[in-house]
Amino acid sequence: MAWARFSSLDGGVIEASGVDAVTHDIDDVDSGFWAVVLTFEGDLTAVRMSSVTRGPGPTTSSSTWPGASGEWSASLGDTAYVEGVEEVRERIARGTVYQVNLCRILGSEIPEGLSVRDLGDVLARGNPAPYAATIEIPEAGLEIACASPEVYLVRRGRTVTSSPIKGTAVTADRLLPKDYAENVMIVDLVRNDLQHVCRPGTVRVDHLCRLEAHPGLVHLVSDVTGVLRDGMGWRELLDASFPPGSVSGTPKHTALQAIADLEPEARGPYCGAIGWIDADRDEALLAVGIRTFWVERDGAGRRMLRFGTGAAITWASDPQGELAETELKASRLLSLARGTARG
């Protein structure tokens, strides 16, 4: 049965079930409650859910997830990733780009019958996240367990907020000047994106480089808010701001070209947008699709569990340090998925 669980705007939980409609056109999202997945490449799947309940806090069941015990492959091995970082630094030296988020996709074969709903419960217990989502909607080809700490867009009426994360370390005292520079660059990009669709003078930075603690990590987070102009709807908002700046780079168009040149696999839901739109309430929460697992078939028909991890590359980047950051970001989540870390 189609089922999904999301974080709500007030810190509670939304659970939805049943399918009324499936669309790949954002203009169809004009009434009802929709589960929404937008891949990094821009492919939208939105599902209008039949039944929606809202609760005060997270609820999980006793999971039967046995763990993804197979070997994990990577779209970019360690050597290739380091070479990619060096290539980005060369492009920065040439002046074509300032920052690129370079990612790699991991994959492990899993048996038929394993449910991402169970994996979502494991993540909720072992790596609680403020913008978590679990989506199991076979009718739409969606199997996703997301433990995202990052807001792409929150919408309340005409007010929209984006909260990019840039800067990651094990502890706050290990954050580098580079981390703060990354964040400020992306905040400037997000401000520019929102200014295309928001009323003049309404785009503001509410918080800059505030510190957030998450399981095993600390992040620098900023909040950028604006008020949409009359006539600006979801299509215009997504056209102006997608993909999220924190997982692409700046300037966005040359960063996206670098990603296309250097990453051998499509990112899919990873680094896209995952969440919900309630068109009746004129509310929405779309998380950046990081710390996210999804299921898909590979070319041989095998059922694969995928996971993405990456790092922001600037001129100050140390290639080995950026490789280590991708491993740091993946470590706890992969341990939970393998069944070797619980709680």
Rank of each mutant, 00 (worst) to 15 (best):
L9A: 11
L9N: 12
G12M: 14
I14K: 11
A16R: 12
G18C: 06
V19M: 13
D25K: 04
S31I: 00
G32V: 03
V36C: 03
T39K: 01
E41W: 02
T45P: 00
V52I: 11
R54M: 12
G57K: 11
P58Q: 09
P58K: 05
T59E: 15
S61K: 10
S62Q: 14
S63L: 06
S63R: 11
P66W: 07
P66Q: 04
S69F: 02
G70N: 12
E71C: 06
E71W: 03
W72G: 05
W72A: 14
A74E: 15
L76H: 01
T79D: 15
A80I: 08
E83S: 14
R89A: 09
E90V: 07
N101D: 09
C103E: 10
C103H: 07
R104L: 12
R104K: 15
R104Y: 10
E109R: 15
I110R: 09
P111A: 15
S115D: 14
R117S: 13
L119I: 08
A124E: 12
R125P: 00
N127R: 06
P128S: 09
T134F: 01
V151D: 07
V151E: 10
L153E: 02
R155N: 05
G157D: 02
T159A: 07
T161N: 01
I165A: 03
A169D: 04
R174G: 02
A181G: 03
V187P: 05
Q195A: 13
Q195E: 15
G201S: 05
T202A: 05
V205W: 11
D206A: 14
L208W: 11
C209S: 14
G216W: 12
G216H: 09
V218L: 12
V218C: 13
H219F: 13
L220T: 07
S222Q: 09
G231R: 09
R235I: 07
E236C: 01
E236N: 05
D239N: 13
S241M: 14
P243G: 10
P244H: 10
V247A: 04
V247K: 01
K252V: 04
K252C: 07
A255G: 07
L256V: 02
Q257L: 09
A258V: 04
A260M: 07
L262Y: 01
E265W: 04
R267K: 08
G268R: 02
P269G: 00
C271D: 00
C271V: 00
I274H: 00
D278Q: 06
A279P: 06
A279W: 03
D280M: 02
R281M: 05
A284D: 03
A284N: 08
L285A: 08
T292D: 05
F293S: 05
G301T: 04
A311W: 07
A312T: 13
T314D: 06
A316T: 10
S317R: 04
Q320Y: 13
E322F: 06
E322D: 14
E322Y: 08
L323Y: 08
E327Q: 15
E327P: 03
L328W: 14
L328I: 03
S331W: 05
R332N: 04
L333N: 12
L334G: 10
S335T: 09
R338A: 05
R338H: 08
R338C: 10
G339I: 06
T340V: 15
T340N: 07
